[in-house]
Simulated scan of single mutants.
Amino acid sequence: MAKPDPALLDASRYPFHHEIVPRFADLDLNRHINNVTMAAYIEDARVRFYEASGYRKHLTGLSTMVVSLNLEYLNQTHYPDPVTIACAVERVGRTSMTMIHVVTQNEVPVVFSRCVTVAVDASGQTVAIPELLNEWTLRP
């Protein structure tokens, strides 16, 4: 699989950053941060992004569903150095949103992720994505 566009790996371009300090329990047998743990780190940053952007308030009475989640591992991630997850909206559709994340450790990109989500009401019907997320979109 081809590496992502290098411009997408520049964490300084992203509007939101969240740092996580790995726990020893987050490691695999090779003392790398476990792949499943990395997905959980990205999930945590995404939820914190929802709060910071105001999107969480829009979700009152709604649920979000992950439609697609793709992680590309670019480098090894080691304990105990913290990782920073940078988040941005890549695209807002009528009822779906694509977010991108670049995870860095010691300023080196280690993971690139793309996640598509939808918001649904109690009946399971998708609802419109608010325009407020446009200001959180990654700019060229």
Rank of each mutant, 00 (worst) to 15 (best):
A11C: 07
E131S: 15
L132Y: 03
S53D: 08
G124N: 12
Y73P: 05
N106S: 14
M97L: 14
E51C: 07
V83R: 01
V118G: 03
D44I: 09
R94I: 08
H58K: 10
Y50I: 05
T137E: 10
A2I: 08
Q105N: 12
V127P: 01
M1Y: 08
E135S: 15
I85V: 15
M1Q: 14
T95N: 09
L62C: 06
V36L: 11
L8M: 09
P22A: 04
M97F: 03
Y50A: 14
V47R: 13
A122Y: 04
R114Q: 12
P109N: 10
V21G: 11
D5T: 11
H17S: 15
L133N: 10
I85T: 11
H32L: 05
T126S: 15
Y50Q: 14
T117H: 10
T60N: 13
D10F: 02
V120K: 08
F16Q: 08
E135V: 13
A86R: 07
P109D: 05
P140S: 13
V21I: 11
E72Y: 01
L71G: 02
P109M: 05
V111P: 00
D81G: 09
K57A: 15
M99A: 11
V102R: 00
H18L: 09
I100F: 01
T64V: 09
C87F: 01
R13T: 02
C115H: 05
T37P: 00
S113Y: 02
T137N: 06
I42D: 00
V47I: 14
V92L: 09
L138H: 01
G93V: 08
L62V: 04
V21A: 15
L71T: 06
P82Y: 04
M38S: 04
V102C: 01
V111E: 04
